[in-house]
Each structure stands twice: as structure tokens, then as C-alpha cells.
Design a protein around this nucleic acid. Sequence first.
DNA 1: AATGAATGAGTGTTCATTCAT
DNA 2: TATGAATGAACACTCATTCAT
Lengths: 199, 199, 199, 199
Amino acid sequence: MPKSKERCQEIREEMRNTILQKSLLYFARNGFAGTKISDLSRNIGIAQGTIYVYFESKEELFREILKLTNYGQMLKRMKRLTNLPISAAKKLRILSETVMKRLKEDESFAAMVALNTQMLLEKNQAYSSEETIYQTELYEYTAKLIEQGQREKTMAEGSGMKLADYYWGVVYLYSLKRLFTTEYEMISVEDLERTVRKG
Amino acid sequence: MPKSKERCQEIREEMRNTILQKSLLYFARNGFAGTKISDLSRNIGIAQGTIYVYFESKEELFREILKLTNYGQMLKRMKRLTNLPISAAKKLRILSETVMKRLKEDESFAAMVALNTQMLLEKNQAYSSEETIYQTELYEYTAKLIEQGQREKTMAEGSGMKLADYYWGVVYLYSLKRLFTTEYEMISVEDLERTVRKG
Amino acid sequence: MPKSKERCQEIREEMRNTILQKSLLYFARNGFAGTKISDLSRNIGIAQGTIYVYFESKEELFREILKLTNYGQMLKRMKRLTNLPISAAKKLRILSETVMKRLKEDESFAAMVALNTQMLLEKNQAYSSEETIYQTELYEYTAKLIEQGQREKTMAEGSGMKLADYYWGVVYLYSLKRLFTTEYEMISVEDLERTVRKG
Amino acid sequence: MPKSKERCQEIREEMRNTILQKSLLYFARNGFAGTKISDLSRNIGIAQGTIYVYFESKEELFREILKLTNYGQMLKRMKRLTNLPISAAKKLRILSETVMKRLKEDESFAAMVALNTQMLLEKNQAYSSEETIYQTELYEYTAKLIEQGQREKTMAEGSGMKLADYYWGVVYLYSLKRLFTTEYEMISVEDLERTVRKG
DNA sequence: AATGAATGAGTGTTCATTCAT
DNA sequence: TATGAATGAACACTCATTCAT
């Protein structure tokens, strides 16, 4: 008798997610070329072939991992935040606290930031996903926030986009630290904010 | 004539340096696993075998590249700077201007910072060279500078080492930008300084 | 009730035959190495595992397919034909008409001829079944028929076995055409007969 | 010092031809799916990697083998033959003798006929090369020859194209025998001619 | 009995390294 | 010394087979 279709689908979904989650960390830490399917599968605790039941190739797995990134969600929050009738300084505080919290609590978040920023950096066309577009939009909203702050004299001078890029660059930097180093000192929310705040 | 021998040695040295310089950029951009000897040699404009005339293996080549980094020189300057009878703020300005200047003018500098910081990040034992120790020492001197500034009320609160790490992390970040992106906006000296300066 | 047991057996037999029939065509068209169990099962409309309920392995399935070939029956007819008190020319006509009719009407027949002749050609020891022996005997009877014709001056000169081999070779050839090409022109009975008939 | 460019090119060409020639027989005997690169390279007496120095993939190697077939040359002869002011029967004799001679003397010819006819049979779009087009043209010229013979009352009745297809089908058949069986009886030129000659 | 996800031995392919020239 | 064709170990990927359901 066949397994119940729903249960079967459920199991498939579970395994797919397991592979994606574990691979995310592996790829973020070792890069695409540095990640071997054999190591990866051993690390996940499955056979090499199983990966190919769920993904067509190492490349496709990588692409799916990039899609994982829920920048869409962060972008939504960012939009809402932008529209709030509060000072840019307060908005920045809310944003920074959220980001630092996730960075501390969720290693996968660090991995996603790391991978996506890497893609953005390398402008690797092959993997330029929808996510990198979201990311760009995220930068644009951050720039707007900063420009509001500049009018309120609480943010540093200079191009809003440059400062937004700087801000998220530092988030990327500490995502790398989170991923690679076991013992490190995380910067404070204030440290992060100084990238864009007026002295 | 003895001159031919010297000349020969000279030519060898030249070729060795060419390989090192070109490989530095290649490794910095593509990582160790992502760098193929075939691509590398084509990029340099020599045969694959030639690399093995000068270096025992891909690994040795990589190790030699890491040794290139003249952190020793920067460290010396740093020590001198520390001992100058001027304010921490002024010292920081001198340091930051030097660093940003080199970052702008010398792509190889960016590559060296990128590679070495990567090694530090990954704490990759296999490649922990003398340079990473220099780098650590560099961080320590920077920490001292910051602590002087904290006493002078010009630097931000927090562990000096954490802030030094932050400062050089941002330098690493913009080394990556220099390496990977063709069009990007470099941060200003003031932007860099804000990582550690009091608001 | 005992009937359920019989019915069960019946169902098993049906499924087994379905697999054999469909696989026969698949193997004949794609060869042993070119046939994937995954494709085969999809083509039959069952799960991969189901094949292994009925057959121990891909090899066993293939061997069972070869056994399907009812050369025994054709051999019997051939023997009867040989003993008839008619001219070799008439015997040949009866044989050729029978063969061409089956070739036209029954794709499975074409597949069986193709597979068995392939086995004979390749003298693949691994699969030399009882059937290839029947086939050899079939050739011998055909040779006798031709030799009768040579005495009657209606068949071409040359070794009877060679001509028999030629005759059945052409049958094999048009089995291939039947299997592989959608639009093709079948040769006539006369065309086939000319392989062995005197001009 | 670099090897002389010409000599180098020469060596490359030699190796490429060795691989092609040896692979031709291997593919003709075992089919595409049945040919393993490991076996193939062992058979040629080179490392597996060497094949990939000369060909991008197993598929490309296969395609290049199909291109080898010098049907073009045979086609040229065929055209010349068609235009000769002699009887179709004589033309057929010249053609048949040429073909049978090559079949006996050159195993590679047998392999090429086998592979190309297989491609034509399977109408495998993936590998339909220029050669299969030549082959079709070859069939057309043969059909013309046969039609001349029909006017001269020396060739059998029926569609010229069907008979040409029959004629070359038999050539394919004996190419297979040449390839697969060690001891077999080759048909005579007369046997081959009977496929199309009037009784 | 039937399923199809999971397996891993076996394939095709890549790439650091060697070596004859 | 410089070359680049040749190598084979290591990698990505396939597919016959198994097994829990």
C-alpha cells in the first residue's frame, strides 16, 4: 500500500529543509568551491545520493539556499519602520536592535547575510537572485532613513546610499565573525549605529 | 662571467614576484578552493608547470602569498605612532589617512588585508603564519591607542580590543569592496574613524 | 474461500506479464545498458520497487524477457513445413508470408527477434539462453529448406547455413526498422525471398 | 624551452586520432550507454583524464566519432558512378565490390556504417549529424541507380528508395556481423546484389 | 503487494601535479 | 628554465537496489 500522499509530501519537505538549513551553514563557511558534496552529506548524516533526490546539482542547491533568505520579511518591516511618525534616531535604534538580536540568536541569519552580501559583492551574475534585488531595496530604505536623520541633524553627512551600504557592510562583517570565530566580542548596538550617526 | 649567474638569479626573482603578485589578487578574489592553477597560470600568462618551478604546491604558493603582507612595516609605524606625544585623536587621524590612502592606491594592499583577515577570521590553523601574529599585535597597539583616547574622552566606550577589531574589520570590509566591486563609494576617513570615536 | 488465493495468483501473473511485455519493447529499443529501471517503471506506470517484487534484478528481468520468445513454436512449424511434400519455393513462400505478417502485426515479435538476434550476434555468453539454441536450430531447418531448393534449382548457390543466416538477418533488419522508425517502407515477401532465391 | 609548436600540434593530432579510432570500435560494439570511459581509456592505454584533454565530454567524443565517417567520399564516388555511361547492373557490381571489399578489409568502416545507420534508425535527434544527411543523399543516388536498372529490366520492381534502403540495410547487417562475431560467413557480392536485382 | 525515499557502489568529470621535451 | 600534454586521485553525479511504511 502506498504511504499516505500527504505524509509522504511532509517527509519530503522536512528532508529538503534539513538539507537546506545544514547546507546554508556549510556553504556560508566554506564557500561554493570549498564545499564538497561528500562532506556536506556526511555532515547532514545522509547519503550523497539523497541530496540529488531533492536537488538537481550542487549549483541548484546553492541557488535554493540563496532563495531561503527572508529579506522580503525584513524589507516589509523596514518599510513599516520608515513610515512611523518617529525620529530617524529612534527608527535606527529599533532596526539595529532587531538586527543585532537576530545576529546573536540565529546562526542561520548570519549565514544568510554572509552568503547574500558575498553574492552582492561579487556581483556574481550566475547567482543573482531575487534576493539580491530585495537586498538592494533594503539598502534604499535604509538610505531614506539616514537622509531623514540628516535633516534632523542626528545622522552623519554624506551620501545616504553610501552610509546605508556601510551600515549593512558592518552587519555583514559581524555575520562573518559569528560564523567563523568561536570566541569573539560582538559590537554593541551603539557601535553599529556609529557607522551612520552624527558624532 | 659571474654576471650571468646574478642576472639569472634576478630573472628568477622577477618571475617569482610576478607569480606572487598576480596570485595574491587571484586568491583574494576567488579564495583558495576557488582558484584553479590552470586559470591562475593563464591569467599570469605562463604555463601551469612554471608555477611548480617556483613553488612546491598550490598550498606553498598560498603560504608564500600570506608571508608577502608587510604587516611588520605597518606595525613598526604603529609603534612609532603610539609613542608620539600627541592626542589619540590625532594619532587615529594619521593612521586612518594612511590606511585609506593605501587602500585607494594599491589593490595589492586590499588583497593582503582581505586574505590575512580571512585567515584570522577562519582561524585556519593550516595557514596561521607569522603574519597573523603581527596582525594580532597590530590590533593590540590599536587597542592601546583607543584606550588613550578613552582617557582623553575622544573615543567610544567599550573594550579597546573590541573596538580595534571593529576598526580593522571595517578596513577589511572596504578591502573586499575594493577587490570585488568595480563601482562603489569608498567611505571617508571620518566614516572609518566613527567606528571608535566618541559621538 | 480458496478463490481469493487463485485470484491473487492471477493478479500476480498479470502484473508480471505487463512488466515483461513493456520491458521487452523498452530493452529492444534501448539495449540493456541504455535501459534505466527508473525510466522503465515510469513507462510501465508502476513504482521502481514493484519490479523488484517480481524480478530479482535488472539482469533477471532481461533473462526472463529473452525466455519469452516463442521460437519453440516457430521451430515446430518449421519442422512441419520441412516435412511437407511440396517444393522448397512454396515452403519459402509460406515461411516468408508468416514471418512478414507477424512482423507487421505484432511489435512484440519484432522486439523478440531484435533482442534474440542481438544476443546471437554479440554471442553474449551471460545471456545465452535456451532460446538462442532454438534459434540456431531454426537456422538449421531453414538451411535444409534452402538446400532442397538448391537441388530443385530454385535457390541461390552457396552454403545453406550462410543463406539461412542471411535470410533471418534481413528479418532482424526489418524488426529493427519496425521498432525504431515510425515511417518506413516494409519490404515485400518477394524482396525478402530474393535473399535466398535464384535469380 | 617550449616544444616546437608544429611538433606539439602534430602529437596532439595523433593522440586525438588514436582516441577517435579506438573509441569508434568501442562505441560501435557497446553502444553509447554501454561504453565506460574507464574501460575505454584502459583499452586505449591512456589515463581517463587524457580523454578530457581532447574532448569535452563522452557525448562530444561520440559526436566527433560520428563526424569521422567519410560518407562524403563514398557519396562522391557514387555520384561519379551514376554518371558513367554503363548499365545499372555494372554500376551495381562496382558499388557492391567496393563496399564488400572495405567491409572485409577495414573494421573501422564496419563500425562507421554500424554507428551511422543506428543513428539513422533511431532518428536520434541529439546526434543527427551532417553525416546522416550525406547518408540520406547516398540512399537517393542508390535509388536512382536502381531506377535506371528497372528501366533496363535488370532490377527488381518496387520503390527505388525502398530498395536502396534494403540494400544499405544489408550492408549494415554485415557490418554488425563483422563487428560482433569472430567466425561468420560473409555473403558474396551476388548475395548482396540480389536485394535489388531482378530474379 | 506496492510504494518511493534512501542508499552507495560505480560512473563521468575536474584539476593539482608530474615529466619528457 | 619553461612548456603543456599526461596523469590519477578526488570530486560531482547516476542508478540499480533496498526497505520502512
